[in-house]
């Protein structure tokens, strides 16, 4: 299975450049979205750009989507991309410092970058374990620490960790990936308690199976079985998750924190 957050999604941008249901922001916020060059991350970046926010994202490689955002005059002063491997602490810190140098404070952090390696644990390589844990968990903690310090200094913010239902239910062949996602949910709860009094909310979104990840990871039989078991009768789109992120980071939603919001078409209901 490939990285659920790194597969290519269907195009998200309408000809009008506005997603249906995209919120109207009162003032542009500074939003960091990790791993925003493709897949789910691309969808979340597009959603916030459509809402008028300033968006900074990073990935190990530049994609067509990134080049399109960089060359679009509509995003000239409010899109920042840095090529960075977030599992490398120096690169991760460099990305964060670039964002602060550009826009000073961070209002929203969406920890989306992640990687999946599939295989049963008894045959799993130590290198693959390290790769998954280093990016999904350690890099997320490292960046979040820096962003939380910025939010403490500037009076608040919103953090959303992109988790997975595999961290809640488990999935054969994804035990390490699921472990990192369950750990993220624990991180969400602990951090929410730490910084709740400082107007910082921290939540997780446990994503279900998206079209993007399924097309590369599961065969038709598995795909159809998931759809049959999903009350909504379909796989998810990146927009399904992006809308939930938007809800959780809404400035008015300051009484929702420390929660894991499951967005999976009802699969785990």
């Amino acid at each position: 299975m490939t990285n659920p957050e790194s597969s290519s999604p269907p195009p998200l941008r309408s000809s009008a450049g506005q997603l249906p249901g995209a919120p109207e922001s009162a003032a542009p916020r500074t939003v960091i979205i990790t791993g925003g060059s493709r897949g789910l991350g691309e969808g979340i970046v597009q959603h916030f750009l459509d809402a008028g926010d300033r968006v900074a994202t990073c990935a190990r490689s530049e994609t067509d989507a990134v080049r399109a955002w960089q060359s679009d005059p509509a995003y000239a002063d409010r899109f920042l991309f840095r090529k960075a491997d977030m599992a490398d602490r120096d690169q991760c810190t460099g990305f964060f410092k670039d964002v602060v140098a550009e826009w000073k404070s961070v209002d929203v952090l969406v920890n989306n970058a992640g990687v999946a390696r599939d295989g049963i644990l008894a045959l799993f390589s130590d290198e693959d374990s390290d790769t998954v844990i280093d990016l999904n968990l350690k890099a997320t903690i490292h960046l979040t620490k820096q962003v939380v310090r910025n939010m403490l200094a500037h009076g608040g913010g919103r953090i959303v960790n992109i988790s997975s239902i595999t961290g809640l239910t488990g999935y054969r062949g994804l035990s390490v990936y699921g472990a990192t996602k369950a750990a993220l949910d624990g991180f969400t709860r602990g951090l929410a308690r730490e910084v709740g009094s400082r107007k910082i909310t921290v939540n997780s979104i446990a994503s279900g199976y998206l079209k993007t990840e399924m097309s590369h990871g599961l065969d038709d039989g598995q795909l159809n079985q998931i759809i049959r078991r999903t009350p909504a009768g379909r796989l998810g789109d990146p927009e399904d998750i992006a809308r939930a992120v938007s809800f959780l980071v809404d400035p008015a939603n300051d009484w929702i924190t420390g929660q894991v919001l499951v967005i999976d078409g009802g699969l785990t209901a």
Binding site: R149, N150, L152, A153, H154, E194, V195, S197, R198
Partner: peptide, 13 residues
């Protein structure tokens, strides 16, 4: 401890 963290962050800022 949280106020100390805030102070640390503000000083760095």
């Amino acid at each position: 401890s949280l106020e100390t963290a805030e102070l640390s962050a503000i000083l760095e800022d």
